[in-house]
Simulated assay, not measured.
Amino acid sequence: MYLYVNGEIVHESEAAISPFDHGYLYGLGVFETFRTYSGHPFLLTNHLARLKRGLKELNIEETIHEQKIREILNSLLEKNQLQDAYCRLNVSAGPEEIGLRTTPYKNETMIIFQKELPPLVPLREKEGVFLQLRRNTPETTERLKSHHYLNNIAAKRELGPSHDLEGIFLSKEDYICEGITSNIFWVKNRELYTPSVETGLLNGITRQFVLALAQNLKIPVHVGLFEKEKVLEADEIFFTNSVQEIMPVSKVESLYFPGQKGKYVGMFHHQYKKYVTHLLSIEELNEGESL
C-alpha cells in the first residue's frame, strides 16, 4: 500500500518518521479513522473539525485544509486502486529536541494511511461484555482521539481476540461509558439512550450522526449518566463507529436481544446508508437534506 507522508506519496516500505518526533517520544498526536464509499470520504468535515480541536489542545499548529485533504485522498485511492477504503489521518507534534515543550509545535508530521476493507457484512451482530477494567479519565477536559491508547489495548487484552465480542467500559463511578472502539446506544420504550461525554467517552463522529438522525426522525433521545442495569433492561442495543457503522447487539451477559432484527437498528442502518456516498458533514442534514 501507498501512504501520504509530509507532502509525498510513498510506498509503505519507504515510509519513515524522525525518532525525535514528539508524537513518538511523548504521545503528542491525534488521528481520525473514517471510510470512503465509492471514493467519497463520509463525514470528512466533522472528522477534520475534531482533529483540529485535538491539535489545538495539544498546542500543535496546523495548516489542514479540507480541499487539500480530499485531493490527497483521491490521489491515494487512485495509487492504491481502491474506492471503498479504510483511512487514517494521523498528525503528530513533529521532531523537536528531547524534553517537555511548552511553546507551540510548528513542524507537525502528517501521515494518511489507507487499506482495503474486507466486504462489509451489514448489521453484523456483536455480543457485549462488561469489562472489569474501568475507563480511564481523559488527559484534558475532553477525551481526544489521541496516541494514548493503552487503556483500550488493555481492555482488548481482557476481552480477547474475537471479532464477535465488544467490551463495554464503565467509568470509575460505575456509569456506562463506551465500547473499546465504539460508542453504545440502546432503545427502551421507543426512546433512544446513550451515555454523556461526562463519563469520559470519545465523542464519536458516528455517535453524533446517529443523534442527528434521531432528531430528524423525531425519536426522543436521553443523553446522561446510566448504570449498567439500564442497558440490561433495553429493548435493543447497538454499537457505532466510523468503520463498522452500526453493530447490533444480540447478547449481553446472559440476556439476549433482537440484534439485527431490531426495529430501530434496522431504521438507523437504513438511514445511515442513504448518506454515505455524498454527505461531508452532519450539519448538512439540517440544510435541506430530507430523510
Rank of each mutant, 00 (worst) to 15 (best):
Q67V: 07
D84H: 14
I64T: 15
R70F: 07
I72H: 05
E66I: 02
K68C: 00
E57V: 13
G54S: 11
G54P: 15
K68S: 05
K52Y: 03
I69V: 13
E78L: 01
E62W: 08
H65S: 07
L82M: 14
E78K: 09
D84P: 05
N59R: 09
L55V: 11
E66K: 06
E66Y: 01
N90Q: 08
C87P: 05
Q67R: 10
R88V: 03
N80H: 06
A85G: 11
E57W: 04
H65W: 04
Y86R: 15
N90I: 08
S75Q: 11
L73V: 14
Q67E: 15
E66Q: 12
Q67H: 12
L55G: 09
E71T: 07
L82V: 04
L73Q: 06
K79H: 03
Y86H: 14
E61S: 12
Q83Y: 11
N80M: 10
Q81E: 15
L73H: 12
L76W: 03
K68V: 02
I69F: 02
K68I: 01
N80G: 07
N59S: 10
K52W: 00
L55T: 05
E66T: 04
S75D: 11
N80L: 05
E78V: 00
N59A: 12
R88G: 05
Q81C: 13
E57D: 09
R53N: 11
L77V: 07
K56G: 08
I69M: 13
S92L: 04
K56C: 07
T63E: 07
R70W: 10
I72V: 13
T63H: 11
N90W: 09
N80F: 04
R53P: 01
L77W: 11
G54T: 14
K68F: 05
L55E: 14
A93K: 08
L77T: 04
Q67W: 01
N74M: 04
E78N: 10
H65L: 05
E71Q: 10
I72S: 05
N59L: 06
S75I: 00
L77D: 03
E71I: 00
S92K: 09
N59I: 10
R70H: 07
V91S: 14
G54E: 14
V91N: 11
Q67C: 00
A85I: 01
A85T: 02
R88C: 12
N80D: 08
A85Y: 05
E62L: 02
S92C: 08
Y86M: 03
G54Y: 02
V91H: 12
Q81K: 09
N74L: 04
N74F: 09
R88W: 02
I64R: 09
E62T: 07
R53F: 00
L82T: 05
I72G: 08
I69Q: 07
Q83C: 02
Q81W: 02
C87T: 13
E71W: 06
V91I: 15
H65Y: 12
E71P: 04
R70C: 13
N90R: 11
K79R: 13
T63V: 06
N74P: 01
A85K: 06
E78Q: 02
K52E: 00
H65P: 03
Q81N: 10
K56D: 15
E66C: 00
E78M: 01
L58M: 15
N74I: 00
L58I: 10
S92I: 08
K52Q: 14
E57P: 03
E66R: 02
K68L: 08
K68A: 06
V91Q: 03
I60C: 12
L73D: 01
I69D: 03
E71Y: 06
